[in-house]
Design a protein around this nucleic acid. Sequence first.
DNA 1: ATGGTAGCGCTGCTA
Length: 262
Amino acid sequence: MRLVTWNINSLNARQARVEALLGELQPDICCLQETKIADRSFPAMAFEALGYESAHHGNGRWNGVAILSRVGLSEARAGFVDDEADSIEECRLLQANCGGTRVMCVYVPNGRSVDSEHYAAKLTWLARLRDELGRTCDPTTPLVVCGDFNIAPGDDDVFDPAAFVGATHVTPQERAALGDLLAWGLVDAQRHVVPCGPGPFTWWDYRAGAFHKGEGMRIDLALCTRPVAEHLIEVRVEREARKKGTFDVAPSDHAPLVLDWQ
DNA sequence: ATGGTAGCGCTGCTA
C-alpha cells in the first residue's frame, strides 16, 4: 500500500501538479490539505478519471482537506464526531476507510504566535483530535493519521533551533499535545523508519529562498497504529515536487510525504 | 540563465 500526504496550498492553483504526482507515484491513497476550494467546485470527476474515488471537505476560502483512494473509500466523515458545527466550518478534518485502513486527513491550525488566541485554539484542536481517537478508533487496528500538523516534533526537525526560539511549531505545549496522540497508540512513521534527523524536511518558507538554502521544517507527519507501522517498508519526502520543474505555476511550500507498507 | 513569496481576491489577511 502506498499513501501520499501533501499540503498543496490551493487545489485550483495546483491541480496539474497533483495529477502529475498521482501519475508518477501511483499512490493507493492520497491525502491533501489546504485545498482552498468549495465542495461544489471540487474536481471529483477529474480524479475519478484517474481511477480515484474521493471525499472532500472545504468551504472555498481557507483550509480544506481531501482524501483520494483507488482501493475503496467508505464511511467518510468531516469534522469531529462530537461536533456542534464549529470544527465542521473550519474544514480541517476528514476521515474515511480506504482498503482496510482508517485514514484521517488533518490540517492542524497554524497557531500564528504563542501569545495569540489562535495558538490556544491550536492546542484545543489537538486535544479534540486526541479525544476523537479515544472515542472512535482502536490502536490495534490499521489507522493512519496524516497531514500538516504544524508541529516540528523535535529540535532535529528544524534547520536551526535557535531560529525558532519563542516561535510556534516547537513549543513544549505543542510537542506535548503531539505526544498525547502518540501515547494513545500511534507511531511517527518517518521516525520509525529513520530514527534520527535532521528532518527530512517537508516545508520551506516561500520567502528568502528558504528551500534553496535548506532552511526547512518537518511538520507534515504520518502517525500510524502498530498494525501499519510494523509493515512499513519506506517513508520518504518527494522533494522534486517542491521544485518549479516544467510547470507554469509555482510549487506548494510543502513537499509530499510518501509511505509504503505491505 | 545566477534565482529567492504565494493564493485569494481586491486590500489586506493568512501561512
